[in-house]
């Protein structure tokens, strides 16, 4: 039996009611195995970010189920969803979204503080920051580092709580080409090194080169689902 870390089953997301009803996502189903590096691609307005919000439990589907690590998340209340997001999911946003009033180190350890597992968290954060080459920036505030550096901090923040899945929404969308390439390589190396599942939303599929799986979304539907064997 396959070790699925994520199963999306018949997910609809509908905005509005009656005549104004708009389907942002329509009957989406796919699954992701543990350790896979997966892309969700599509043009602007295709519904890929909406889908990421469903997978990230930041929004609820109108119909269907999102099962993460074998747990049907539609059954969870608001507090349980928060706890679940904290323990099972790591987020990397387009605009890094560091808390500018916290230092780099404090930003990275924040998920662990929320989790209440602060023991060794600073040491682990320092190790991770060293991995991404930011060991000398850890006492700077979030707004005192470059965009590329901030995105690398966001990656370590996403990893600190050892989540089942790391979700990234256009992680290179706000970076120059050099920083974007560095970020892509970093994500892929972490995927291999940590056997960490990554689901990345992007409009630039080619930037990521070889990946395990690509789901292409168009008008809220899956247009194409390609596995490793079919990918060039």
């Amino acid at each position: 039996m396959a070790d699925y870390v994520l199963e999306v089953k018949n997910v609809d997301k509908v905005y509005g009611q009656g005549d104004t009803e708009v389907y942002a996502l329509r009957n989406l189903s796919f699954s992701v195995k543990r350790g896979e590096f997966m892309l969700i691609v599509g043009s602007s307005g295709s519904g890929k970010s909406t889908l990421l919000n469903m997978i990230g439990l930041l929004d609820r589907p109108t119909r269907g189920k999102v099962i993460i690590d074998g747990i049907d998340t539609s059954e969870l209340n608001d507090n349980e969803l928060s706890t679940f997001r904290n323990s099972k999911l790591g987020f990397i946003f387009q605009f890094s979204n560091l808390l500018s009033d916290l230092t780099v180190l404090e930003n990275v350890t924040l998920p662990r503080k929320i989790q209440g597992t602060i023991q060794n968290s600073a040491d682990e954060a320092k190790t991770l920051l060293k991995t991404v080459g930011l060991e000398n920036q850890m006492h700077k505030f979030g707004n005192q580092i470059s965009g590329g550096q901030a995105q690398r901090v966001a990656i370590t923040r996403a990893l600190i709580a050892k989540p089942a899945i790391v979700l990234a929404d256009e992680p290179t969308g706000n970076l120059d080409s050099v920083s974007a390439e560095t970020t892509v390589q970093l994500l892929k190396s972490l995927n291999r090194k940590l056997y960490q599942t990554f689901i990345i939303v992007t409009h630039d599929r080619h930037q990521f080169g070889e990946v395990d799986k690509v789901v292409t979304i168009k008008d809220g539907r899956i247009l194409k689902e390609e596995m490793e064997a079919n990918l060039v």
């Binding site: 997001r85 808390l99 924040l110 998920p111």
Partner: peptide, 12 residues
């Protein structure tokens, strides 16, 4: 910042 905190697991 509130949105980010909530996203990474902070409760209301």
């Amino acid at each position: 910042d509130i949105g980010v905190m909530r996203a990474i697991g902070a409760k209301r």
